[in-house]
Design a binder for these strands. Sequence first.
DNA 1: CAAACAGCTGGGAGCGCTCCCAGCTGTACG
DNA 2: CGTACAGCTGGGAGCGCTCCCAGCTGTTTG
Lengths: 342, 342
Amino acid sequence: MRMAKKLTLEEIGKLAGVSRSTVSRVVNGQPDVKADVRERVMKVVRETGFVPNPAARSLAAQRSGILGLVIPRSVATFFGDPYFSRLTQGISQACYEQGYMLSLFLFYTEKEEELLLPRIAQRSFLDGVIVQATTDADPIIPQLQKSTMPFLVVGRLNEMPDNLSFIDVDNVSGAKNAVEHLIKLGHERIAHVSGRVDNRPAADRKIGYEKALSENGIPIDSNLIVNGEFSEEGGYAAAQALLPYKPDAIFAASDTMAVGVVRALKDAGLLVPNDIAVMGFDDLIPAQRSEPQLSTVKQPILRFGVSAVEVLINIIEKGDMPPRQALYDTELIIRNSCGAKL
Amino acid sequence: MRMAKKLTLEEIGKLAGVSRSTVSRVVNGQPDVKADVRERVMKVVRETGFVPNPAARSLAAQRSGILGLVIPRSVATFFGDPYFSRLTQGISQACYEQGYMLSLFLFYTEKEEELLLPRIAQRSFLDGVIVQATTDADPIIPQLQKSTMPFLVVGRLNEMPDNLSFIDVDNVSGAKNAVEHLIKLGHERIAHVSGRVDNRPAADRKIGYEKALSENGIPIDSNLIVNGEFSEEGGYAAAQALLPYKPDAIFAASDTMAVGVVRALKDAGLLVPNDIAVMGFDDLIPAQRSEPQLSTVKQPILRFGVSAVEVLINIIEKGDMPPRQALYDTELIIRNSCGAKL
DNA sequence: CAAACAGCTGGGAGCGCTCCCAGCTGTACG
DNA sequence: CGTACAGCTGGGAGCGCTCCCAGCTGTTTG
């Protein structure tokens, strides 16, 4: 086995009988190279398995081809949530497709954040950053705003400055659609098991619920709105609290809570959906497996991650742009728990 | 606001009245700099917020300071599993602590793998790679073996060449400990709800179960071993299948299956742990919340991730080393379902 | 038939670091 | 008082690429 000389543009050029510059043009898919020359170079590249040195490329071109995905400390605890793994998957997939690499910043301690934020905000390592939104005021957003680093927030903060770019799922209309579906099915006393109010998606879903009722001339009854804490037990308790007020349908702000709701109803001797209809939100696996199968609102998380990358790359490559703010539509998944299929 | 000149070693040197080289020494914590000079340079670095350009550094030093974490296609589906999020967290944490960055490769399609593997194996982008082991023969391992890239497998393949470095949790001894604990409590007809046999951890846990029995003079009864498919329903069904053979304890190879087992026992009118003891494996959240709380085997996943990085960095920095293979101990978590606390 | 120009190719300069060696100090020692 | 040597500092060279401009073809046009 011969000791291969280190592969560089120069070396490939020598092998193909052209200059460094021409090889560079071929490798980067630039025009202005004669077809036969291009082919000859490509052949050498293929045979040698040459991959240009990314460090040299970064240094010379002043761009690294790496995007950062930042999961702040306040979110990292939920990283096990299928939502995040799915989102991360969408983001990574889109990165590769667009020729970028992905660097993950999963923060766990404050020290880590302090140590790494300056490096992240530094233009020289990353070309752009996607930040997962958090509930509280994270130091990362102002840090990034101070820098020239292109960045995008996924999901929304409670207080979102309007000069930020973000993309999110439209929780309001998702919830509204779900409730309107229940209304169409003839339900009138529709209860809502909400999430923690300091949580933006929870708040938005509640708004969507209220909007659907108002627009359909149904009065909002505060007795029919109970906080279920985003947990199954919370959903169970919430349903118990709701029963005295005789709802004919319950819209839960998450599938997890909806599962608790269904269990509570069963335990109270009620049939779902015959006696009472139930809808969830998220479309998690347990929702599909539960008995009855849960009707719910699906977030297109994977596509959402892909879009995030596309928007960010647009910002990077098109330079200074006005903040881009986009909301992605949800999808109503009709299964058995809402009674539409009776 | 003044238009700051781009910060470079040279520029910082000018501000501190020293040369590029001296600034480099200070920034890299090398000795051979007089204390007062060092302090003066540090002051400028702090005030300007200077961070050395990683691309230039990589190019000159021939190392990038980036580690890759590869989640092959065959594993990516399980990325939502708390196991992975925890592992990823441990790995990222350790990276930062050791001054490395982390790049994530979460594969989803074959095309992605083909496209990126050559770049991953290329020394110039990553200093080292951690690969999550998969059940089937992934192209990535041979690819990395062909290259000079230092890498480490986390978990084990079914067929693990002994010239590979890997680290894993010791599933055999974890399971053995759990079963021995049940034996000490006086149980004799101990059943096992196993996972899929093509799954290495599942196989190892079964081996540990059998070992514990053999070493304690208890015959292995194949009627007492049932595959629970790593799912709750599978656990439920497995327990039903076991009941005719009158086990006095059931060791499930995962908490998820254990939860199913407990539900089946309850539905059969049996009390846990009074009538029958149950142990799980993993120590997931549901295990802690179930009724009764599940005794289980905990994997120190976070520490495990940290160790993975340490071992890898050792390989990188110490150069050519013999393959390092390490097993990490599990921890027995005694709660209520095994009856030790009666 | 000369001039202009598009199409292609080569090489210089420079990106911001690290590494190495030369040189410059000051102290220890013969 | 000269020599040796450690302790510190500065600058050259070079990492492998991109960008840009110069130059060399061959074709088109006045």
